[in-house]
Design a protein around this nucleic acid. Structure first.
Lengths: 133, 133
DNA sequence: TCGATCTGCTTGCAAGTGCAAGCGGCTTGC
DNA sequence: GCAAGCCGCTTGCACTTGCAAGCAGATCGA
């Protein structure tokens, strides 16, 4: 399977994993210990030299407390809008694991973020994409 | 030969794939053509002799019109109880009107809310470090 | 009966994953 | 000084994924 990596997905998982590991204040060996994945391999994955399998990604997701889906999407093995085409609002409202108050709070935050990220209607050029590290 | 496989996960995907292929009335070569996966490999996967990667599973899911998550769960690379949280996270990730930073922030808040609203803490995995503001 | 064309299956082999062992560099304590 | 403890990184190798090529059997029309 030669075709892969639209827009640097391999590096993307690596960057994301590195960022999350730093945020959790874990060394490579600590994370390796937590996940059962060897530390040299983690090193290579973070630098984009290797493509971790879904099993490894799952272990990493658990240890770093991020959603496995997020990792899969960044690894390019899960399509975000494949069956996630429903809106954020509907998904939140339908989520049984959230209290009603938290649903409302989440939707408020969502609306606020959307307003912030929305490009100015006046500006002719539309830059919805952005790079930021 | 048969190495790992906790609880027959490999055979499980194979059985499921065979069933779905039969239901779709497709031959091995037809499905191979649709997915870009070779037919001998599909044959081995269906009989549990090989463990398909997530990429292959994704292609199969598309061609057979079943959810990729279902396949991942059966392949043992996704936890079933994560499925409930799937829709919100995917919807957020798929939302083009949010910046990457805001997506992450929103997901963090969502995860935090979920933890607060959770009825009972599961005592399955060890909690490594809990930094919470 | 022969050939064409299906069905699924077996077999090497290239490419890739993941790890044990070991490397050099940096801090700490003796 | 110099051992002990971290940190991340490199290398060589076992094992797996996935495919091209080819196999035997079934079914069709000529």
């Amino acid at each position: 399977m030669a075709k892969l990596d639209v827009g640097g997905t391999v590096g993307s998982v690596g960057d994301y994993l590195l960022e999350q590991r730093r945020q959790a204040k874990l060394s490579l060996r600590q994370l390796a210990d937590l996940t059962g994945v060897s530390n040299p391999y983690l090193s290579q994955v973070e630098r984009g030299l290797r493509r971790p399998s879904a099993e490894v990604l799952q272990q990493l997701a658990k240890a770093l407390r991020v959603s496995a889906e997020t990792l899969y999407v960044r690894a390019g093995i899960l399509d975000p809008d494949e069956d996630g085409s429903r809106s954020v609002e509907l998904a939140v409202l339908a989520d049984p694991s959230l209290s009603e108050r938290h649903k409302q709070a989440l939707l408020d935050i969502y609306a606020s973020f959307r307003r912030e990220d929305a490009p100015e209607p006046k500006t002719s050029t539309d830059p919805p994409e952005e790079e930021l590290a």
